[in-house]
């Protein structure tokens, strides 16, 4: 008897009290919790996102489409970044005003090479206002998971309002489970010393979020 059979047989014996007719989807799950907490205008949702991002020490910037290249150029220059990793599908115009040399995200590149790069610029799949969370799904403008992990400075562009959702329950249906996802809420942190929060451990210690107004109004 394989261990698989042993464990499954034990489970079935343990559940002898469960009525025969009860199916796996029968016991009801009450889902009377809220889809989103409170009602907000899109502008208020955006405000909340900015507020919650900043509360966990992400640096938030806002700009219109025409201003993005100059802003990214400024942010990289302010860090003194000489090199910046670029996902394969990132709009090339975004980095048109950047002084830093673009390093393509190559599958054969090593983690050590990545460690020598100063910054990374990506888009995202969506952002969640109530929790101040960015979700990356490995899309063409986000690249592989490692490029937003090893460099110490991450600039993430969120297209607003299209990519902003209010809450966690609003986020999940828009995400594909088969893609590797990374949810980011502020730069890396730890509560491991006396249960007090300290920002900056292994992931990028500086997270800058650009809220890019797509209608050009920003």
């Amino acid at each position: 008897m394989s261990s698989r059979d042993v464990v499954l047989a034990r489970v079935r014996r343990a559940l002898a009290d469960v009525p025969r007719g009860e199916g796996p989807y029968d016991p009801p799950v009450p889902r009377d919790y809220q889809r989103v907490h409170g009602s907000r205008t899109p502008e208020e949702t955006l405000e909340l996102l900015a507020e919650n991002l900043a509360d966990y020490r992400a640096v938030v910037h806002r700009c219109g489409p025409g201003e993005l290249p100059a802003l990214i150029g400024r942010l990289l220059a302010a860090r003194g970044a000489r090199t910046v990793v670029v996902p394969p599908g990132l709009d090339p115009r975004w980095l048109s005003a950047a002084g830093a040399a673009a390093v393509p995200d190559r599958a054969e590149g090593t983690a050590r090479e990545l460690d020598a790069v100063d910054s990374v610029v990506t888009g995202c799949a969506l952002a969640i206002a109530e929790t101040g969370t960015l979700v990356l799904d490995g899309g063409p403008d986000q690249g592989r998971r490692r490029i937003t992990l090893v460099p110490d400075h991450h600039i993430c562009v969120v297209r607003v309002p299209a990519q902003v959702v209010g809450s966690v329950p609003e986020a999940l249906p828009r995400l594909a489970p088969e893609r590797p996802l990374t949810w980011i809420s502020g730069p890396s942190a730890t509560s491991d010393i006396e249960l007090d929060r300290v920002e900056g451990v292994h992931g990028p210690r500086t997270l800058e979020v650009v809220l890019l107004a797509e209608d050009g109004a920003g």
């Binding site: 590797p180 996802l181 949810w183 809420s185 730069p187």
Partner: peptide
């Protein structure tokens, strides 16, 4: 006690 922890990874 955070609204969301800094990192969540999901993989399939």
């Amino acid at each position: 006690a955070e609204r969301m922890n800094p990192y969540t990874t999901t993989w399939t």
